[in-house]
Design a protein around this nucleic acid. Sequence first.
DNA 1: TAGATATCTCCAGAGACTATAGGTTTGGAG
DNA 2: CTCCAAACCTATAGTCTCTGGAGATATCTA
Lengths: 138, 138
Amino acid sequence: MLSIGDLSKRTGVKVPTIRYYEQMGLLTAAERSEGNQRRYERHDLERLAFIRHARDLGLDISAIRELIALSQHPHQPCGNVDRIASDHLKSVRDKIEKLKKLEQELERIVSHCDGDHAIEDCYVIRSLSDHGLCDGEH
Amino acid sequence: MLSIGDLSKRTGVKVPTIRYYEQMGLLTAAERSEGNQRRYERHDLERLAFIRHARDLGLDISAIRELIALSQHPHQPCGNVDRIASDHLKSVRDKIEKLKKLEQELERIVSHCDGDHAIEDCYVIRSLSDHGLCDGEH
DNA sequence: TAGATATCTCCAGAGACTATAGGTTTGGAG
DNA sequence: CTCCAAACCTATAGTCTCTGGAGATATCTA
Ligand SMILES: [Zn+2]
Ligand SMILES: [Zn+2]
Ligand SMILES: [Zn+2]
Ligand SMILES: [Zn+2]
């Protein structure tokens, strides 16, 4: 039986975050000691590791909730699991695309400024004032 | 003299957002009509466009606040302006790097799942349970 | 058994908005 | 000029994923 602090040390997830995951329904409410403190078992450790890893991979709480629910039905086909992961991959790719466009604009903007002239002539300020100087949309 | 709705239509910034920018100190508090409604001039239109464009480029509110403050001193050198833009470019690049790593892991994970087997055997679920299957860190 | 540490619940804050409720002003039609 | 709908006002709460604090209680160690 682990206290919440033990669980925290073993998974690297902060104590308030563990309580938050419980509140969000990702962790089932833990058993309690006589004095009302949470007590965990290996099972909970594994689930918390799952949650943490999924979060590290960028999945949001509701996606993780779905995945946990699906994994409770081990004999069903994994189509929905696949869909959640694929959707997430797509959203990561979309974000990368957007950020690359930003990177290009910012590179252009920064490259025109040597940081050593008057602000009234600064290309950074002018670029921010006028989207017409940009190459693309954002 | 423009109403807040006019300003909104011309810049594409929603009315509550304009009020929010005022509250955050990005827009100086507008003049008011006799009945206490905000009235704007061209000057405000330009500043709002600046703010919007900076936000579209991903700068956060406090960076924009600094940029506005700096642009009030047009004869000073633009070193700080340059620094803000460069720092932001760096943070965009860092984000791209992180997302690319995620993309790789997710690609690997998704590619091992055809969406058509039992959840208990699903590689997606196994990968989420075990970071050891990942190639890198996140 | 005292004191130190850990835990409990509840609440607020971060960032950048967005939306609602309940009340007031404005602008145009009749 | 009067009336009404549309636009506006303020204040507050909700979004998302935590994180930190206050004040009270429990547990562990010496
Ligand atoms: Zn410059
Ligand atoms: Zn632009
Ligand atoms: Zn599968
Ligand atoms: Zn991993």
